[in-house]
Amino acid sequence: PLASIFVCVGAAMAIVGVLVLLHREPLAGNAWVSLAAVSLAVLPAVLFLVRRGDRNAARRGHIGEEETGAQPRRERMATLAGELARAQDGESIAELLLAAATEGLEVEFASLALIEGTTATGLAARLDGRSLPWPGELQVDLERQPSGIATAVFEVAPLAVYDLASSPAGDRELAEAIGARSGAWAPLVAGETVLAVLAVATRGQRAFPAEDLALLQELASGAAPALERT
């Protein structure tokens, strides 16, 4: 019904316009007053077309911004892939990966734990931009201790926990040690084996949406071949 206004008003104006053209007499006997009326009647169509042009321009500008925003991320991932390929040992791979994870996801804490059999051992951890000295002390028994790491290993999939305080014991201890409220994990997979688990955590409560988990998994997947090589 709303769109029909445009068609009907347009057709009505065309009919009256043709009549004036044929009879060559001003509407209601006064050309100037009629011009004012016609101008008022045309205004909505002019506004509609002008506003629409503005919106299209704004949308094009927005898409342009998104594209330029995505470009650095792709470039960062490519740079990281190159650095990972040149890394000589597990520790340097972990450093690169954790720096990329804390920066890319804007989180305070990131860690990488190696999976050997049913045990996860901390390889590196980073808190507030600095490496933590105690990652080796972090040991998680994957079978006896339910945790985010164990779930990421057994499900071979990324996961997020909104409230670590209500999470299993293993995560609670870690959360208390670094004062974290929310966390996310992603496995580094080579073939069918989970080599390690990348974890991130925040001091504030944060729901890691699908795009955050996708980025975390992208980082983990990118580092897996380099870690397998070393």
Binding site: F6, L27, A31, A45
Partner: peptide, 29 residues
């Protein structure tokens, strides 16, 4: 003259207005 005024001030604006309305309808789909 009143004839040319009618065409210039009424017929042409009416036809231009009609075209704008029909263009808007086309844009709306």
């Amino acid at each position: 003259s009143s004839e040319s005024q009618a065409i210039l001030l009424n017929a042409i604006p009416l036809l231009v207005g009609a075209a704008l309305y029909l263009l808007s309808a086309g844009v709306l789909g």
